[in-house]
Nucleic acid binder design. Structure first.
Length: 471
RNA sequence: GGCAGGGUAGCUCAAUGGUGGAGCACUUCAUUCAUAACGAAGAGGUUAUGGGUUCGAGCCCCAUCCCUGCUACCA
């Protein structure tokens, strides 16, 4: 029994959470719950990427103090996690004191290793992306593709740079060998292609002026703040004590798994391990890269106005219905589409007609015949284990629905309503075992529902109101 | 432009070169333990297009058209 430290990405907190955040939270939580059930000592972390300049600007636009604005938004993410029944043991805020301390320690370690140097830099800076661009990388209006309509700032200043280039060969070796394993394979290949094309050092500080004095101060230089990505990645360490609670840190680091979306793969697959190598720290073991949700077939975007708030789905259909959709109805390695229509479709056919109906028919039969439930066997389906190791949640959950379908068929074959005495008891006890197995395997995916079923199928079995009333 | 991965039933996706499948949706039948649920049967396809290799191609080769991701040094 070992430890398992898993992180979800640290969301920007300049806006409310959307359905994509829900997807990642749910995936992370499912993996975490699975490992808890394997009896590992699991620690989950997410947090708020609070030191971005974006946040300062969003706060200004909202007419609020930065800290106040950030606290409000970060709270929305924590609340979403709760509503999704997603348990984070640590929710680390980038503005917290111990994080500042921790990030400065990381900086010091890299500096001691000679990997930080000063260089004058001049370029076009997109505040939205927190990145410098060359002219070739911009559209015909001289704006970046992510934030059209937004003029870039022309900036010249002296910044600190990190010697990323120094770690190119080492990174290739580490990623190619799977020492730092990137899943899925095609993302790993992308990273390797990028690595082999050559790495440039990157700037890891910003002037106080440009950050509006917001963020983590560069150690020993009062005029600069640490670049948001350098400190944001360190939330994975600062949240478990790096720089302020070494005992806790030693217990949990390195992370066993980082869960991220495809958009931030370069930071996690290249910058992050390079920084850790420089600092002489251990590398995370695995990176799971999921894809994105489209909504009604379209990319989510503020300008399109189709950003979907997961709270709506939770209120309308319930937490486990949304969890089910996110896990079962899309492939984690492909963009999936979200729509309330599709959610309702899967709710009715899989949850109401499938799982819910099976539980209802068996519990009624048991109630009528005074059946008492025995102890469930608590065994994982072999295929489910295989799929969980590959993060194929849709395949894993499909195994459970196979069991549901089998049980339904068995009932129609055995016709318990035509049976009596010992034969009837035997049939029903078999069905009870099947339901217990289904509920046991369902735990990581739909915790509330599986708990309800396990409770219902312990001791004297009673018929309850439908788990998922048809919509 | 280069590299990678795709295009298969209305929808989402499977198929070591050997009779193209599943789930959902749809139609019919049967049934009552169950939430008009479950079960059985059925319908639904020129596998993006055009060539080629092969006894045989969804799969291999060439060309073309689309979609997605990554990414350009020089000129």
């Amino acid at each position: 029994m070992g430890k398992y430290y898993i992180t979800a990405a640290i969301p920007y907190v300049n806006a409310k959470p959307h359905i994509g955040h829900a997807l990642e939270f749910i995936q992370t939580d499912t993996i975490a719950r699975y490992h808890r059930l394997l009896d590992e000592e699991v620690l989950t972390l997410s947090g708020g990427d609070e030191n971005a300049l974006k946040n300062v600007q969003a706060a200004e636009a909202a007419g609020k103090e930065v800290q106040e604005f950030i606290n409000e938004n970060t709270k929305l993410f924590e609340e979403l996690a709760k509503k999704l029944n997603v348990q984070f043991d640590v929710f680390q805020k980038g503005s917290s004191q111990n994080h500042h301390q921790s990030s400065q320690k990381l900086w010091d370690l890299c500096e001691k290793n000679g990997d930080i140097y000063k260089k004058s830099y001049r370029g076009l800076y997109c505040v939205g992306c927190e990145t410098f661009y060359t002219i070739e990388e911009l559209n015909e209006n001289g704006e970046c593709f992510e934030h059209p309509g937004k003029k870039l700032d022309e900036v010249e200043e002296e910044n600190y740079f990190f010697k990323l280039s120094k770690y190119q060969d080492q990174l290739i070796q580490i990623i190619e060998s799977g020492e730092y394993d990137i899943i899925p394979e095609f993302r790993k290949n992308e990273v390797l292609v990028f690595l082999k094309s050559g790495l440039h050092d990157f700037s890891i500080s910003r002037s106080n002026e440009r950050t509006k004095n917001w963020g983590v101060p560069v150690p020993g230089d009062g005029t600069q703040k640490i670049y948001v990505w350098f400190d944001a990645l360190n939330i994975y360490q600062s949240g478990i004590g790096f720089g302020w609670d070494e005992e806790k840190y030693k217990k949990y680091w390195p992370a066993d798994l980082h869960v991220i979306g495809k958009g931030i793969i370069r930071f996690h697959a290249i910058y992050w391990p390079a920084i850790l190598l420089s600092a002489g720290l251990k590398l995370p073991k695995k990176l799971f890269v999921h894809e994105y949700f489209t909504v009604n077939g379209q990319k989510m975007s503020k300008t399109l106005g189709n950003v979907y708030d997961p709270s709506i789905a939770i209120e309308k259909f319930g937490t486990d219905a949304l969890r089910y959709y996110c896990l079962a109805k899309i492939s984690p390695f492909q963009d999936g589409d979200f729509s309330e229509e599709k959610l309702v479709e899967s709710y009715n056919s899989d949850l109401a007609n499938g799982l819910g109906n099976l539980v209802a028919r068996v519990s009624r039969l048991c109630e009528q015949n005074n059946i008492e439930a025995g102890q469930g066997s608590n065994v994982w389906c072999a295929d489910l284990v295989k799929y969980m190791e590959q993060f194929k949640f849709n395949e894993a959950i499909g195994i459970i629905w196979g069991l549901i379908s089998e049980a339904d068929k068995k009932i129609n074959q055995d016709k318990p309503w035509e049976q009596k005495g010992e034969k009837l008891t035997e049939i029903l006890e078999d069905l009870v075992k099947r339901i217990q197995a289904i509920a046991f395997n369902l735990q990581p995916f739909m915790p509330q529902t599986s708990e309800k079923i396990l409770k219902q199928f312990s001791g004297q079995i009673k018929s309850n109101p439908p788990l998922f009333p048809r919509i």
